[in-house]
Each structure stands twice: as structure tokens, then as C-alpha cells.
Design a protein around this nucleic acid. Structure first.
Lengths: 144, 144
DNA sequence: GGAATAAAGGATAATTTTGTCCTTTTATTG
DNA sequence: CAATAAAAGGACAAAATTATCCTTTATTCC
């Protein structure tokens, strides 16, 4: 469904949202361990997300990644779009370069329904909305 | 959503189902042109599908691929499973190696709903059910 | 200002997926 | 039986994705 980079990216954003409350910064190593991802790869992904303004970062001692108040409202859809592009939201399920009402693939309509559900789920979910459940240990971002 | 191989595979299965009625065989070249896929790559995919019994094949002059009556009832779910495996049906949306009711990822429940919809769409769709609409030119399997 | 720290960035490597080419096997037809 | 046609299979190549390493830049603390 999502690329590995995107899976890591979503998990990282949710992790940072939860860990960086009251302005605390979360270091790369912390994030990588917190979501069980390869550190250097995580660095690249956070770089990209930071460049696109979806997460804030500060260099130097006591630096790291964090989110300001509006950052907590970033939706999963924005994260997916930033990493994987809009293929998931707009592409044809069977890979046709053009597939629309005029020239539909065999599963055009059914897939549109599903894609819209995915889209709406991602658009209505914010990276900051899991903070309490994560803290309580009800939800998880890694295996252990 | 699906790998390229799987997209080609689904389109090829639907194409063969439509073209091979009354026992006619469809050649590799015909299939590749009919769905706009690279011929040699298509060969590999059909090989795999044939090995797994989802499509029939005959070598030699006038040979090719075809489907018997039960073949027309093969579901898209079987094709996807044969090519991409069960990752789409069972895997965690955020890539966690174990994600279940006991240790759910943040979007576990919502994704389960969506995955079930995808699963049920694929399981209830048969490769042979588009024959008439394809013939009428209402549905398409390639760009042109 | 200098040392230390941490992200940013560039280059490169490993792996997987996608795609190609060539030979072999099997079947058909004359 | 020989020639031919077509899929099967093996080996290889290209591209994309995933992953690592090293240098540079910015920031903080002493």
C-alpha cells in the first residue's frame, strides 16, 4: 500500500508528535529506535519531511525534531503525499496511464470507492491524535 | 497498491478470458499488445500463473494461453495472491511485523476495514465477468 | 572563540523489482 | 520424420527502492 519510506515516515511523524510535547526535541537516534527503523534511512526521510515543512528541526546540541501546534494537525494524507506522491490517491488500480469515466478499466468504479475511503481516512487522521493512547501503551509503533 | 507484475497479470487474465472463448488460444505477443505490457516480462508473469494453474497453456504451433470453463471463474484475489502474495490482505498498513488487536498500530482498525473491502472486492470479481463489456468497448485494458 | 553535538547533504552500496535476451522443451503440421 | 511455432526456463541488465557511510553546516555550551 505504502512504500517502506512512507511507512517509516508516518510512524516517525506520529512518534515525534507524541514525544515532542511542550517543545521538547527528539533526536534522530531516538526516533529510529522508537519506531524500529534503520537510522540513516530514517534521517533521509525526516530530512525530506523537514524540507517540506511537515516537521520542524533544530541542529546542534539539544537539537532534534519537534512539532509546533499546527504540526500536530498535519494529516497522514499530507505525509503520504510528501513521500509517495499522489499515485495512491489518483492512480488506476490496474496501472492504466489513463483511466476515467470515459475509458474505465474493469474495476474503475469499485476502486474509486475504495481509494476514496483510503483518502478520507488519511485526510481525517492527524499525526497528533494518538498521543494519549500511545502513552497508555494501547497503541504501538514498533514490535517490542 | 499492486506491483506492476500484478497489474499486468490481472489485465492479462481478463484479456485472455475475453479472447479465448470457445477454446481459442491467445499468443503471448497478442496478450502483451492487448494490454500494453512488455512482452518478455509478460511471458514471465504468464509462466508463473500457468505454473499455478490459473491459466492454461499449450506449446507449439497454434499454441498459446487460454481458459477452461472453471478458469473463467478465477477471482482477482487468486491472481493477486499468486503474484504479490498475501501481504495486501494480511499486512499492517504501517508495516509493523506484528500488528493485531492485542498490539495494534494507530490505524489498525480503520485499515482492517479498508483491507476487508479490497479483499471482498477482489474475491467477488472473476476474470471472466467483463467479457461482454470489453467486447462492446465500454471497458478498457490499455491506453489506446 | 573553540569544542562538541546533531541535523543536512552527498556519494555510494545492497536489494528488489522490472525488463530483456537467448536457449530449451514441447507440440503441430506438412 | 523434419521443419516450424510457441511457451518454459535460465541468465543477465536496468531501474527503482532501501539502506549505509562520510562530510558539511548550524547550533549550543563552555
Amino acid at each position: 500500500m505504502f512504500s517502506k519510506a512512507c511507512e517509516y515516515g508516518i510512524r516517525a511523524m506520529i512518534y515525534i508528535a507524541q514525544q515532542s510535547r511542550q517543545g521538547e526535541r527528539v533526536g534522530l537516534k531516538d526516533v529510529a529506535q522508537g519506531i524500529d527503523s534503520p537510522e540513516a534511512f530514517m534521517a533521509k526521510i525526516l530530512q525530506a519531511l523537514s524540507r517540506q515543512g511537515l516537521v520542524q528541526s533544530v541542529k546542534g546540541p539539544n537539537g532534534g525534531f519537534y512539532m509546533d501546534a499546527p504540526g500536530l494537525k498535519v494529516t497522514l494524507a499530507e505525509v503520504v503525499l510528501a513521500i509517495d506522491g499522489d499515485q495512491l490517491f489518483t492512480g488506476c488500480g490496474l496501472g492504466l496511464p489513463e483511466c476515467n469515466e470515459k475509458k474505465p478499466c474493469p474495476i474503475h468504479d469499485e476502486f474509486k470507492l475504495i481509494r476514496n475511503k483510503i483518502k478520507s481516512l488519511l485526510e481525517t487522521t492527524q499525526v497528533g491524535e494518538f498521543n494519549e493512547l500511545l502513552e497508555k501503551g494501547v497503541l504501538h509503533l514498533k514490535r517490542v
